[in-house]
Design a protein around this nucleic acid. Structure first.
Length: 803
DNA sequence: AGCACGCCGACT
DNA sequence: GTCGGCGTGCTC
């Protein structure tokens, strides 16, 4: 086995295959599939993944692997195979599939440098360059270019005076701390103690310390504890009694936090019913997908916890996915509280180094449970006993860049290999999952009631058109205002929810209706009060708010829409005595800010919590008795067939925040379209009826779950080119699929232009098309090979949002 | 993605 | 007759 097949870190069509390399003698037997290696590729050195070993290659002259980057594979056999599965199913490059399974810290960084080729070169170099290479110095290529000496260096490299080197760098260093340990036996230590001069009191203390704890200890701890200094230790090291050494330590994001240990709670009858089949599946090592459908507050988490308990007792591991964990510190608390140090947490709030450390705890089998966002589905466990996906319907489980995978699909794929159950939990399951449960593909487990049989909150839907007719032009209906006042008096808390989407404030002329758009993207600019500027969310373009309307020169140009800031202002006017905490991207940007704001609210430091999407989940405070949704229908008008579903889910989710404990809750939903079924049924918290209504519509329009989708998006600077290229693809797809499939397009994407590139798409709706994957691959092949056309083609084999 | 190789226009 | 423009194709 002296040859390794390597997938190199070059994401292009042409290099999307294994390249063979000779394993140098010294590494034979060490280099294994799943390791990262540094290999020469053309003139460069780059990172690659070993995917296989062999003794022969068709390629005649192989080059040698430079060196391995890992001592032990970072991808085990199962994950390597999962990588291939990802490649096939999402039509992405192999290298992307492997990289997505690892923490970002393991992705290589490259540096190009120039140094002297040999000793003599130093004097033969032009005098202008000599200074850069004194004492064997190296020069960074990027910097050299900035200094304008690039061509000069190139010349010297060509005539052999200089040498260009490519360095592959790790992104983060492992964290090390200094430790001290005794190097001799306890008895020898005792003897040494006698021989220490009495004036060296500190040295004696240190030795006594080691006699008490004959073990390694962190240098810092030792110094702190004995109130001594490094020099004392150094003296003992010189005497050969102690040794200092570096030891790798983990960055612990929860270092200074204690989690109170909790015991399993007694289950309600409904919970016992629901958990039974899960436990059975764990016990028998049988793969099965469960849809745990339970209303908000019905105790799904306790079912997760007790299932995991069973898995751990069986000596297996558990993966728990939550939508965005930084947003639900309560969830982390519950898991850490139950399983303590056996839990690793992976979420976007961690630094790359912290994520890497948590990942290594998993890799080294130091933890049994991982709780994390989407990418935690790739946790390198090797004996998975259960995979749980909470809030199963959340769109954030779908990655919207290559590889465009859905965590639910990956979960089921992994669970099949490990013969273990997958539990999908939600109060508002996605139509896909619920339909599968109806067809008995998934097993449905229901928790129809809240724990302790608390009532679901009473929901009132307010028609804002009527408010307007009655002369109320504020963003608060009279009913909501009244209830807010009431809660203030009762010293209870309220949550106000603002759907940010479609609500971001845009700048509009009140005379002619002109809206300021991004010059590069066909989308309105968002007003940011912080710097009084307008910004494009897609390309980052910024501009000042014009004084006069560019169209009609009117001076009545102002920003519209209700941002959270604006609501906060308004609240200040109508309820000046209310203490408000605002949660949005601006106030939660800093690390830990989110958690702090929530705990402030929990501690009663505010009466009203005002926020966007991010407060829709996980909030579970006993004193919240009122939830207000300021405008329910903004999401309804986005051009997506899931708009109704999203609206229903969001409203149900938000309503569930109220009255989860002793105090009964009330919910006010303000809307301009109260008659819409998704709003009306969310008000009645009637998922089943919503499901039936929505299914009819999906069937009628050939949408999931009745049909599968595939979306081709084409972009180019030139409108005509995009349309004609898309048209060609549409025709090609039509020629390849059966007449049962529906091929739509070319149609402008819902954001028709981003960064000056026009975007058109082709949507395919189908039930069974065995040829489709091949057809899509062919299209990608054609257009990815040909880079000169300037066309960009991206394919989503299972789009969640049609943008 | 980089980079080298290679074939045509504006200069010493 | 050479320098350098970026089109084309390769990297084990």
């Amino acid at each position: 086995m002296e040859i390794a097949s390597v997938i190199v870190d070059v994401p292009t069509k042409q290099t999307d295959r294994a390249f063979d390399y000779l394993i140098p003698e010294q590494w034979r037997g060490t280099i294994q599939p799943g390791m990262r290696v540094i290999v020469p590729f053309g003139p460069r050195h780059i990172q690659g993944f070993v995917v296989g070993l062999k003794t022969e290659s068709e390629v005649k002259k192989l080059r040698e692997i430079i060196e391995p980057m890992d001592l032990k594979p970072v991808l085990n056999q199962e994950l390597l195979e999962l990588g291939n599965w990802l490649t096939e199913n999402t039509l992405c490059f192999k290298i992307f599939a492997f990289q997505v399974m690892l923490p970002a810290a393991l992705k290589a960084k490259y540096e190009k440098k120039v140094r002297l080729a040999n000793r003599r070169a130093a004097i033969e170099l032009p005098s202008k360059l000599q200074a850069f290479f004194e004492n064997d110095g190296e020069l960074d290529w990027e910097e050299a270019l900035k200094m304008g000496i690039g061509p000069m260096l190139q010349r010297e490299a060509a005539n052999g005076h200089l040498e260009v080197v490519y360095v592959v760098k790790e992104r983060v260093r492992k964290k090390h701390r200094k430790f001290v340990r005794p190097t001799v036996s306890q008895n020898e230590l005792k003897e040494a103690l006698q021989s220490i001069p009495s004036k060296a009191e500190k040295q004696r203390q240190v030795l006594q310390y080691f006699l008490r704890h004959f073990n390694e200890v962190e240098l810092k701890t030792l110094i702190d504890e004995l109130k001594t200094s490094g020099s004392t230790i150094k003296a003992l090291v010189e005497r050969g009694l102690l040794a200092e050494f570096d030891k790798e330590v983990y960055r612990d994001p929860f270092e200074h936090r204690k989690f109170e240990r909790t015991k399993p709670l007694p289950l309600t009858d409904a919970q016992v019913q629901a958990i039974g089949p899960i436990l059975q599946s764990i016990e028998q090592g049988q793969h099965e997908v469960f849809l745990l459908y339970g209303v908000t507050g019905s105790g799904k988490t306790e079912i997760y916890l007790q299932s995991i308990q069973e898995v751990i007792e069986k000596g297996q591991e558990a993966i728990v996915l939550v939508p965005e964990i930084a947003l639900t510190p309560q969830m982390v608390h519950r898991f850490k509280g139950r399983f303590g140090d056996l839990v690793a947490v992976l979420h976007s709030g961690l630094s790359a180094g912290e994520k890497y450390d948590e990942w290594r705890k998993i890799q080294r089998k130091e933890v049994k449970v991982v709780v994390g966002a989407r990418s935690a589905i790739f946790a390198p466990f090797e004996n998975i006993g259960i995979i749980i996906i909470d809030e199963e319907h959340e769109t954030s489980y779908k990655q919207e860049e290559m590889p465009r995978y859905h965590a639910r699909d990956v979960a089921i794929e992994r669970a099949k290999t490990y013969n273990c159950p997958v539990v999908l939990g939600s109060a508002t399951p996605s139509l896909e999952s619920f339909a599968r449960a109806q067809k008995k593909v998934y097993q449905l487990l229901s928790l129809p009631n809240r724990m302790n049989n608390q009532e679901l909150p009473a929901v009132e839907i307010i028609d804002m058109r009527e408010e307007l007719r009655d002369g109320n032009r504020s963003m608060f209906s009279r009913k909501l205002f009244e209830l807010l006042q009431d809660r203030l008096e009762k010293k209870q808390q309220a949550v106000l929810f603002l759907n940010k989407r479609g609500h971001s404030s845009f700048v509009m002329c009140r005379d002619c209706g002109y809206v300021v758009n991004c010059p590069n993207c066909d989308i309105s600019l968002t007003y940011h009060r912080v710097n009084e500027q307008m910004k494009c969310h897609y390309c980052g373009y910024e501009s000042y708010v014009p004084k006069n309307c560019p169209e009609c020169n009117s001076e009545y140009i102002r920003y519209f829409g209700t941002g959270t800031q604006k609501v906060e202002e308004e609240l200040g006017k109508i309820l000046p005595e209310a203490r408000v905490i605002r949660m949005d991207v601006d106030t939660t940007g800093r690390k830990g800010a989110h958690e702090r704001l929530l705990s402030d609210f929990k501690d009663g430091k505010a009466d009203i919590l005002l926020g966007t999407q991010m407060i829709a989940k996980g909030l579970d405070f006993p004193n919240i008795t009122l939830v207000g949704v300021l405008s329910a229908d903004t999401m309804l008008h986005i051009p997506d067939f899931r708009a109704s579903e999203k609206t229903f889910q969001l409203l149900t989710q938000v309503s569930g925040r109220a009255g989860r404990h002793q105090l009964p809750g009330e919910v006010v939903i303000q809307t301009y379209t109260p008659e819409h079924y998704s709003i009306e049924l969310a008000g009645r918290q009637d998922f089943d009826l919503f499901y039936q209504r929505e299914m009819l519509i999906r069937k009628l329009h050939h949408y999931p779950p009745f049909y599968y989708l595939a979306l081709i998006t084409v972009s180019h600077e030139n409108l005509i080119n995009v349309v004609s290229a898309t048209e060609k693809m549409v025709n090609y797809v039509r020629s390849q699929v059966s007449d049962k499939a529906v091929v739509l397009g070319p149609a402008a994407s819902s954001i028709p232009r981003i960064n000056n590139r026009y975007r058109y798409q082709c949507l395919i709706k189908y039930k069974r098309e065995p040829n489709l994957t091949q057809t899509l691959k062919t299209i990608l092949d054609q257009y990815q090979k040909d880079t000169k056309s300037g066309l960009q083609v991206s394919i989503d084999a299972n789009p969640v949002i049609l943008m």
